[in-house]
Amino acid sequence: MSRIPTVKTADKRRLEPKERELEIVRGAVAFFAEFGFDGSTRELAARLGITQPLLYRYFPSKEALLDRVYEEVYVNRWNKEWETQLRDRAVPLEDRLVRFYRGYAKVILNYEWVRLFMFAGLKGLDFNARYLAFLRSSAFDLIAREIRLEHGMPTDGPILNEEAELIWGLHAAIFYLGVRQFIYGMPVPDDLDADLALRVRAFLRGMPAAVGDLIHQEGAGQARRAG
């Protein structure tokens, strides 16, 4: 979870188009993580050691570049194997969740990920809403169904928003470790793996009971409406 270095001047060698594009994207990730999204493409180009027209040859607008930054940081770093592992019922649910959050934490608890997410929210970009919608479809509903199955609750109905909120609470607690380190400059637990295991254990002690109550209330409400 160490801080990344500031943007370095680009290599002056002639690069293949795909290499140059990737160099610009990685430079943009580092640049915007350090300075926020008010940083200009002119400043970015200067720090990369290229001209602004060359940058615009690859990305015709700042918005197009920001979309590519979002892809690089939030989409490409998601490991699809996590979803397979979460479904692996040969492994106890608690162990699956601990394994998932340990892998996930290695991706999100870094200088770039945390600061870009915070800057995006402050700037009013849609990074946050897009990513939370992605998490809901890729992880939250999956985790909720596995918890239901583990505790003998119905799995065929839609996942309640309240369930997703409880899972988001666990996600947010883990994300906040990055905020403490990379925004506030405060210490985080020395043994991150142990801390994550403790958070998952506490979550699983409370989540199933709360969800069971919600599903019971939902069923009772449907029965009253049907009557």
Rank of each mutant, 00 (worst) to 15 (best):
T155D: 04
D156H: 10
D156L: 02
G157D: 15
G157N: 12
P158L: 10
N161Q: 08
N161K: 06
N161C: 04
E162M: 12
E162C: 07
E162L: 12
E163H: 06
A164T: 13
A164Y: 03
A164P: 00
A164E: 09
E165S: 13
L166M: 13
L166P: 00
L166F: 10
I167K: 04
W168T: 13
W168S: 15
G169T: 08
G169Y: 08
H171R: 13
H171P: 01
A173H: 08
A173Q: 13
I174S: 03
I174E: 01
F175S: 07
Y176E: 09
Y176D: 11
Y176K: 11
L177K: 05
G178D: 01
G178A: 05
R180I: 02
R180G: 02
Q181F: 00
F182H: 08
F182T: 05
I183E: 01
I183Q: 07
I183H: 08
Y184I: 05
Y184E: 10
G185V: 09
M186K: 14
M186N: 09
M186S: 13
M186Y: 08
P187M: 05
V188Q: 00
V188Y: 00
V188R: 00
P189A: 05
P189N: 04
P189E: 03
P189I: 02
P189G: 02
D190I: 07
D190E: 14
D191E: 09
L192S: 03
L192P: 03
L192T: 07
L192N: 03
D193T: 07
A194I: 01
A194H: 11
D195S: 09
L196M: 06
L196D: 02
A197Q: 04
L198V: 06
L198M: 10
L198C: 06
L198S: 09
R199T: 04
V200L: 08
R201V: 01
R201I: 02
R201K: 14
A202F: 07
A202V: 12
F203S: 03
F203H: 13
L204T: 06
R205F: 08
M207Y: 15
M207E: 14
P208W: 04
P208N: 05
A210E: 08
A210H: 03
A210V: 14
V211A: 05
V211D: 02
G212R: 15
G212M: 11
D213E: 13
D213C: 02
H216T: 14
H216N: 04
H216C: 02
H216L: 11
Q217H: 11
Q217M: 10
E218A: 15
G219N: 12
G219F: 01
G221F: 15
G221I: 14
G221R: 15
Q222V: 15
A223Y: 09
R224S: 04
R224K: 13
R224N: 04
R224M: 10
